[in-house]
Computed example of a mutant assay.
Amino acid sequence: MDQFHSNASIPAGDSGGSSPFDQIRREDEHGEWWSARDLQPLLGYIGWEDFRNSIERARVAIENSGQTSDLHASERPEVVRPRSNAAAVRRLNYKLTRYGAYMVAMNGDPRKPEVAAAQTYFAVQTRKAETAAVAAPALPQDYEEALVALLDKVRENKALDAENKVLAPKATKWDQFMNAEGLIGMTAIADMLDMPVTGMTNWLVDLGVYRKQRSKFGSNQNMPRRMYQTSGYFAVKVESNGKVSYEVAYATPEGADFVVEQWAKRSAA
Rank of each mutant, 00 (worst) to 15 (best):
V80Y: 12
I10D: 11
V134T: 12
N7K: 11
R81F: 12
L167T: 01
R91H: 01
L39F: 08
R155P: 09
W174T: 03
I184T: 04
I62S: 06
D257M: 05
I184L: 09
V79K: 10
K153E: 15
V259H: 06
V134S: 07
T120M: 13
A146C: 03
S35G: 14
Q176R: 14
P140G: 04
Q67C: 03
M1S: 13
W263S: 14
L39I: 00
R214Y: 04
Y94Q: 08
A36V: 03
A180C: 03
Y121D: 07
I189P: 02
E163N: 11
A190W: 05
L39Q: 04
D175M: 00
A136I: 10
K243V: 11
L167F: 02
N107D: 07
Y143M: 11
I55V: 15
Q3K: 10
M1C: 08
M103H: 02
V148L: 13
L43M: 13
T126R: 05
K173F: 11
A116M: 11
A135C: 12
V115A: 10
F122V: 08
S6C: 09
I189T: 01
M227I: 12
T126W: 04
P20V: 08
K128E: 03
P253M: 00
G208C: 01
V60A: 04
D2H: 10
A136L: 12
I184C: 06
H72E: 06
S240H: 08
A136K: 11
G13K: 06
K153D: 15
I10C: 01
A162H: 14
V104W: 00
A251E: 07
A146N: 05
N85V: 12
Q221V: 10
